[in-house]
Design a protein around this nucleic acid. Structure first.
Lengths: 216, 216
DNA sequence: CGCTAATCTAGAACAAGTTTCAGACTTGAT
DNA sequence: ATCAAGTCTGAAACTTGTTCTAGATTAGCG
């Protein structure tokens, strides 16, 4: 253990205000917790992420777990942030190939969907937490939402979206979340989710100011 | 239609298979429970609906409450079914006035939204339960979804929707639920919900086979 | 190094959803 | 009217999220 404690302050959180800069050991604890959370979630979904188990798995006292993440929902939303970062990185490497913005967005979302299908339990835990979150988790949920927006705008290839386009993006996110839920709860098939995503993505063409399709 | 309705068993549940026909006293219990649930929800939302309190409020033992509704989520989803019936009745009386199908659907949803705004806590309890529901509640959630679909198709004035239109309706429902959630958790304003609803309703025109706007 | 504040730990305690059980009450059929 | 089966009640127990506490550790500082 080199005594150079000054170098610490890992502060790499993606675009997060980083209220209190964490020491190395704290950052390590945080990672262990998130890892344990994702692992338990992958096993059995939302219910399998039990706070006592997360604490034990990550070698941290229950009280400490709650100091890092003030509730199970906070923990799972943070887990989602974490996974979203991964995903964004992965997506960046291979940008979608579609001709139109609508196609590219649909392709991107379907790619993300396929990733979720590989870990359906994890998806369950994260999405349920996200939609169940109450006001006390708003900042974190909002961060997830912003990150998702960035991914979609990326796929659209837009620098300066119009308010109309932003609204379309919001609607796409709504559809994305809700379609995932219907899939996770077994009320919609994978095919149906695909159709819904493709359907809602048509809104993009409708709000494209460079195209002809805008009546109002 | 089979006019064999002379049976005394109350069995008025809207289009529900009515597995076991309930006696009068049982129907009365069921009503008391749903009433207590709605009342507590109106006070303090999801968290305020505590099973022990519902049981006491409706003069029923805890075990009995669980026999009628096997979980808090089941109870709240049933409460939503109940409220949706009300709403559908109300909406039927004054059909929306818009010129286009899109306008009428948007108007209908905004009317429903205004009703929810009058009881935001109740809305919170019902919508949170709906999106948090897992597979064990699928049939009930599906019933709510079907009822919502009927309301939207009603507003569109359609008898035989195309698969494309059904997909658009599903997307509208997705947006409706998810937009409600963002509003309830304080991440979107009422105005924003309105915009999103209007935006997604444009999909209806896009999928109207009698109109010109359908490129593909 | 030695001090102080902050953080961490183990564990008990509490809250609300859910389950269980013995006994009392209803219902439906004979 | 009577009996068996099914239902309801009251209360305790169990589960898991959350809070609290007292004492050990760690971090930052002079």
């Amino acid at each position: 253990m080199p005594a150079q404690a000054k170098v610490a302050k890992v502060e790499a959180r993606t675009s997060q205000p980083a209220s209190p800069p964490l020491t190395e050991r704290q950052e390590a604890r945080r990672r262990r917790i998130l890892h344990a959370s994702a692992q338990l979630a992958s096993r059995g979904g939302f219910d399998a992420v039990q706070m006592r188990e997360v604490a034990e798995s990550s070698q941290v006292a229950l009280g400490t777990l709650y100091r890092y993440f003030p509730s199970k929902i906070h923990l799972l939303v943070a887990t989602m942030q974490d996974q979203l970062e991964h995903m964004h990185g992965t997506l960046r490497k291979k940008p979608p190939q579609g001709q139109t913005a609508a196609e590219r967005v649909a392709e991107t979302l379907m790619r993300a969907f396929r990733a979720l299908q590989r870990e359906p339990h994890l998806a369950d835990a994260m999405v349920r937490a996200l939609t169940f979150a109450d006001r006390s988790v708003s900042p974190e949920v909002d961060q997830v939402s912003r990150q998702t927006t960035v991914i979609i705008l990326d796929a659209m290839g837009l620098e300066n979206p119009t308010p109309e386009q932003l609204s379309a993006v919001r609607v796409i996110e709504h559809t994305w979340h809700s379609a995932l839920i219907t899939w996770l709860s077994g009320r919609a098939s994978i095919a149906q989710v695909k159709i819904d995503i493709e359907t809602v993505c048509r809104l993009i063409d409708l709000t494209d100011p460079t195209a002809s399709g805008k009546p109002s």
